[in-house]
Amino acid sequence: MQGIALLGGVLLITLSATVVTSVTLRSDLVGSAGVPGDFELVQMATAMAAFCFLPWCQLRRGNIFVDTFTLKLSERWQRRIDATWDIVYALVMALIAWRLAVGARAAFGTGETSMVLLVPTYLPIGLCAGLAMLVSVTAVVSARRLLRTAP
């Protein structure tokens, strides 16, 4: 999981360098056309990077949570509530993964590509579908850890 998150970080760093290069090339100093398809790269890479970070974040319990109403409950009940929300998160991410997979299949079937770079759009969509399913599985693992570990 940590490797996938690091891959997302490398993807964002590379994307940042591409954007800086493109903006610099478009400046008055250089006057060039910039990096072709930079906006397409930003769209695809940002989505993939976000999905790369989510499984590691879930395993580390790094997601934002609000515990205003549960602070006075016992730790056992807090863990049960957190595990329930992890399962809800897993179900939502499974739904997202399913719909992304349907979208990737449709894009593959029609041969859809991006406008400038002509990248087949099913590739990033399918990758995000797989990563979303990984998030779903990770959320289930996280819920099981909460329920199995004694407070």
Rank of each mutant, 00 (worst) to 15 (best):
V137H: 00
F108W: 03
R26P: 03
A49Q: 05
T68P: 00
A97P: 05
F53L: 11
Q43M: 07
M48P: 03
D86E: 09
P124S: 02
K72G: 00
T149S: 13
G9K: 11
V20G: 01
L29A: 07
L59W: 14
P120D: 08
A50Y: 13
E112I: 13
L127P: 10
T14Y: 03
L146I: 11
D82H: 12
Q58T: 02
A150T: 15
F108L: 04
L73E: 11
T149Q: 15
A132G: 05
T84K: 09
T68I: 11
I13A: 12
L118E: 12
M93N: 10
I96W: 15
L131R: 10
T70S: 07
E112Y: 11
L15V: 04
T138Y: 01
M115S: 03
I4A: 12
A97E: 01
D28Y: 08
V66R: 10
L127E: 06
I81E: 11
R61M: 13
C128D: 13
M48N: 01
P124H: 02
V116F: 04
V92T: 11
W77D: 09
A139M: 00
S142D: 03
S32H: 04
R144G: 13
A5G: 11
W56R: 04
R148H: 13
G9M: 14
G8N: 12
W56K: 04
L118S: 08
R26N: 01
R105V: 14
M48W: 05
M133G: 14
L54C: 07
G130Q: 06
T149A: 08
V137Q: 00
W85G: 08
Y89T: 05
S114F: 00
G9E: 12
F39I: 07
L95P: 01
W77H: 07
T70L: 04
I4F: 14
A139I: 00
G3Y: 14
A33E: 03
M44V: 04
G34F: 01
L7M: 07
L127C: 12
V119Y: 08
R99C: 01
V42I: 11
A5M: 11
P55Y: 10
Y122D: 01
F69G: 06
T110W: 01
A90M: 02
A5C: 15
D82Y: 09
P55I: 07
L12G: 06
A129H: 07
T110K: 12
R148Y: 12
A5W: 13
L127F: 12
S22F: 00
L11V: 09
V140C: 08
A17S: 12
A101W: 14
V141C: 05
F53M: 11
F65Q: 09
A49T: 06
A83D: 08
L25H: 02
P120S: 10
